[in-house]
Structures are given as structure tokens and as C-alpha cells.
């Protein structure tokens, strides 16, 4: 064969290419396998996504033919006060909810992995149960507990001779209830991530630090927390994206109330799209939300990479 006399440097690539030529199944089979993913991706992600992008450039109302109106939806959007108020409320909710969520889940995970606590198994079951409940039901449960007239919390407050709070008609308190309900419903998943990550930290690190006389706080801040960084990053990223897309729980909890004060982005999209049948406009809001989420994710990824190098 001619390849046999070729110099050594070209021998390997030649052989590799000849192997590829010899087995056509090796190019056909991967293509075949990837086709499934590509078809599903195009059908269920790219298709609806580009349809949404197209709708955002039209005045589509759900019936009739969409008429192309260019960037009108977007120019209207950037002058829309309700859009800015829902955006700022979403940001506020995310900024408050994500750290609370993080601290609660990490604290619970530490307690559940600590050898110094008892009832860990039964506690883990209890902490996991809210994850099995639909977000709609989570909203209903907390709406019930924080009801203004027959809610449990106000009843307990009145028993203690404390002033009852307007959990439904005060916008800030209503947001606090949303944050409580969200943390209650979402802790389970974050807790699982943290527990798995804490278990993966080699015991020898902790034991060595212990023998060197490190206190519990030192061991946590110098060993566990730095080693949990990848998990923390993922938890914060998922938590941020999840909070900004929060919908079902709020919808059943207080419907963005009082009024539209706590209406978050997705609810605004839902209201304009499905209640006012303004699908073109709602699609434009969705596109803006998607761009915001992409930017948030990119910033956080860059942040994570920089932290890794440090």
C-alpha cells in the first residue's frame, strides 16, 4: 500500500482517515443517533422559539392572521410602566429570595449531614415532602395560612395580642409571603444538591482540620464552603432563573396582588397574552425576559470562572 511508505508524521492521520472510510457505519450511525435529538430540538424548542420571535413582531391576538408590525411591540414595551414595575418587582423578589433560599437550604443540609444531630432520616423526609406538592397547591396552602380574616398566622397574632398584619393587601408583606412560600416549596431540591455535595467532600479534610484544632465555623468556612463552590454556583444560577420565571405558585397564592403590585414578569406575560389576548405583545415581553435571563446566566458563568482561577 502507498500509505505504508509515507513518512511517520502523515502516517497516523492517513490511517485514521482510512479507518473512517473503511467503516461507513461510523459516520452513518452517529448521524442517525443525533437526528433524534436534532428533530426533537427543532420541533419542540427551535420551532416554538422562532414562532414566538415571529409573533413578537406581529399584532397576533390568537385568532385571525398575524399582521407584521415590525418593532412596534418593543417600542411600546419600553414605554410601558407596568412592564418596568413587574420587572423591578421580579428583580426585587429574586434578590431577596435567592439568598434566603440558599442559606436555608445550606443550613438544613449541614444539619442533616452533621453527625451531631439525631432524627436526620425523618427530618429529610419532612424537608423533601414540599417538593412533591404542586406549586399551585403550595400557593393555596400558604394563601390559607396567611389569610387576612381566617388565616392561621393572623389568628395566632391576635391570640398573642399582637396587631394582625395585612398579608394580602400590603404589597411588601404579600411579597414576603411569596418568598416564604417559595423557600418552603423549593428548599427540597436545593437541599438534595447540597447534601450530595457535602457527602462528596473527603472526610479526611474535615478530620485533619479537626485534629489541627479548627473550630466548627473554621471548618465550614475554610473547607466546606470553598469545596461547595461549584454546587453553590449551580444553586444560585438555578435559583435566579427559577425566581425570575416564578409563576404558578404566585398565581395561586395571591395572583400578583394586591392589584398588580407584585405581578412578576411571567404573570405579566400570562395576563397580556392569555387574558387580554395580546399574544404579539406578550411574545415581545417573553423575548425580553429571555434576553435578561441569558445575560444573567452569562454574567454568573463568567463570575464562576473568575472565581475558579483565583
Amino acid at each position: 500500500m502507498a500509505q505504508d511508505v509515507a513518512p511517520a508524521s502523515t502516517l497516523t492521520p492517513a490511517r485514521r482517515s482510512s479507518r473512517r472510510v473503511r467503516k461507513p457505519g461510523q459516520t452513518l450511525a452517529p448521524l442517525l443517533f443525533i437526528t433524534v435529538a436534532v428533530v426533537l430540538f427543532v420541533l419542540f424548542f427551535l420551532g416554538p422559539g422562532s414562532l414566538g420571535l415571529y409573533y413578537s413582531l406581529t399584532d397576533y391576538t390568537g385568532v385571525g392572521d398575524p399582521e407584521f408590525i415590525g418593532m412596534d411591540n418593543y417600542t411600546k414595551l419600553f414605554g410601558d410602566e407596568q412592564f418596568y414595575s413587574s420587572l423591578s418587582r421580579t428583580v426585587l423578589y429574586t434578590v431577596l429570595a435567592v439568598p434566603i433560599h440558599y442559606v436555608v437550604a445550606l443550613g438544613i443540609s449541614l444539619l442533616l449531614t452533621s453527625a451531631a444531630t439525631r432524627f436526620r432520616t425523618v427530618s429529610r423526609v419532612i424537608f423533601f415532602l414540599p417538593w412533591l406538592i404542586s406549586p399551585i397547591v403550595v400557593g393555596v396552602i400558604w394563601r390559607w395560612i396567611f389569610g387576612e380574616n381566617f388565616g392561621l398566622v393572623n389568628y395566632v397574632l391576635s391570640l398573642l395580642n399582637l396587631p394582625t398584619q395585612q398579608w394580602e393587601t400590603n404589597g411588601d408583606l404579600a411579597l414576603a409571603v411569596v418568598i416564604i412560600a417559595g423557600s418552603w416549596g423549593g428548599t427540597a431540591f436545593t437541599m438534595l444538591l447540597f447534601i450530595a455535595a457535602i457527602r462528596n467532600i473527603p472526610k479526611s479534610y474535615m478530620e485533619a482540620a479537626e485534629l489541627d484544632g479548627a473550630s466548627g465555623a473554621q471548618r465550614f468556612f475554610s473547607i466546606q464552603l470553598p469545596l461547595l463552590r461549584p454546587t453553590s454556583f449551580m444553586v444560585i444560577l438555578l435559583g435566579t432563573l427559577g425566581s425570575m420565571k416564578e409563576f404558578a405558585m404566585i398565581q395561586s397564592l395571591n395572583g400578583g396582588g394586591p392589584g398588580t403590585e407584585n405581578m412578576l414578569m411571567v404573570q405579566y406575560i400570562y395576563q397580556t397574552g392569555f387574558q387580554r389576548a395580546n399574544i404579539g405583545y406578550a411574545s415581545a415581553v417573553s423575548m425580553v425576559l429571555m434576553v435578561i435571563l441569558i445575560v444573567v446566566a452569562l454574567i454568573q458563568m463568567r463570575f464562576d470562572r473568575r472565581e475558579d482561577l483565583a
Binding site: L111, L112, R118, S123, F127, I141, I145
Partner: peptide, 29 residues
């Protein structure tokens, strides 16, 4: 120091039970 780590810390356990009770209560209610 070993006893504190290997043994049961009553405060941490109490904290865990308290949080678990707070989490369980809405469902129980």
C-alpha cells in the same frame, strides 16, 4: 473535643427538629 463532634449535640438537634416542625406544619394544617 471528640465527644462534642462524635456525640449528639442537643442544640443542633433541637434546631433541626424546630425547622422540620416548621416545614411539616403547613402540610399538617
Amino acid at each position: 473535643s471528640f465527644a462534642r463532634v462524635r456525640g449528639v449535640n442537643i442544640w443542633l438537634t433541637a434546631l433541626l427538629v424546630l425547622i422540620a416542625a416548621l416545614f411539616a406544619f403547613p402540610m399538617l394544617w
